Simulated assay, not measured.
Amino acid sequence: MKSIFDTTNNQEIIFRIQKLTPESQAVWGKMSVDQMCKHTNEALIVAFGENKVKVNFVFRLLGRLMKNKVFNSEFKRNSPTAKEFIFTDKYDFEASKNELITNFSRFAEGHQSIKITDHPFWGKMTYDDWNKLMWNHVDHHLRQFGV
């Protein structure tokens, strides 16, 4: 598997993000390209301790039970997401895209970029877990927009 912590692999994702335009259309799902950039950015800054997501007990338990299956397969289309990651307004595309690029590139600094080891939904996280989650999630949404 490719690594968010590897400079070359990290740049591969950034190159794909850079291909997005305000006119990029989703192949599936309801999000616009600006909403997708906001969504993916907010999900990845959880790793930096910059987005505190509140998850009730039932969902924390569910996340821990599903973790291995989800982390070791492709993300499914139209999967449910936490309310903190749902964006329905119109956003400045360039600002959202640049924020996503800036934050994704932080992973290339190495493992020290990760500031939390206990994800609010998935539970205890290793660096390999963070790599799988972040790579698969961002890749999933870039494929959603054809890049």
Results as ranks from 00 to 15, higher is better:
I116V: 10
F121M: 00
M125C: 07
K67M: 13
V33Q: 00
Q35F: 07
N103A: 01
N68A: 08
S73C: 09
F57P: 02
F121Y: 14
N41E: 13
V55D: 15
L62Q: 14
D34K: 00
F85Y: 09
D92I: 01
R60D: 12
R106A: 10
S32K: 15
I45S: 11
N72P: 09
N98F: 04
Y91H: 07
F71V: 00
G63C: 07
K69C: 09
K115S: 05
F59S: 13
W122C: 08
T88V: 13
N51P: 14
L100T: 01
D89S: 08
K90Q: 15
S73P: 03
S105Q: 06
V33P: 01
M125F: 07
L100I: 02
F104E: 04
E84P: 06
K67V: 14
I86Y: 04
E74H: 07
R106Q: 07
N41F: 09
G63I: 04
T117P: 03
F75G: 14
W122T: 05
P120C: 00
F48D: 11
S113P: 05
F107Q: 01
H39P: 03
L62E: 11
K124P: 14
K52T: 15
N103S: 00
N41K: 10
F85L: 02
R77N: 11
K124A: 13
D34F: 01
F85W: 04
K38V: 12
R77V: 06
N103W: 07
I86A: 08
M66A: 13
I116T: 04
F121T: 01
N68V: 01
A47Q: 14
F85A: 03
A47G: 12
R64V: 13
A43S: 11
K52D: 13
F93A: 13
F71L: 03
N41Q: 12
S79D: 11
L100W: 02
L100P: 03
A43Y: 05
S79F: 08
F75I: 01
K30P: 03
E42Y: 14
K30Y: 02
D118L: 06
M36E: 07
F93G: 06
H119L: 08
R64Q: 15
V70S: 05
P120K: 01
E50K: 15
S113A: 15
K97M: 03
T40M: 15
W122A: 14
K67A: 10
S105G: 03
N68S: 14
K76H: 03
V53E: 13
P120S: 02
L62D: 09
V33K: 01
H39V: 11
L44K: 11
E109M: 11
D34V: 05
S79E: 09
N41V: 06
K67E: 14
I86W: 05
V55L: 13
G63D: 12
F121S: 00
P80Q: 05
F107K: 00
A108P: 00
T88W: 07
K76S: 12
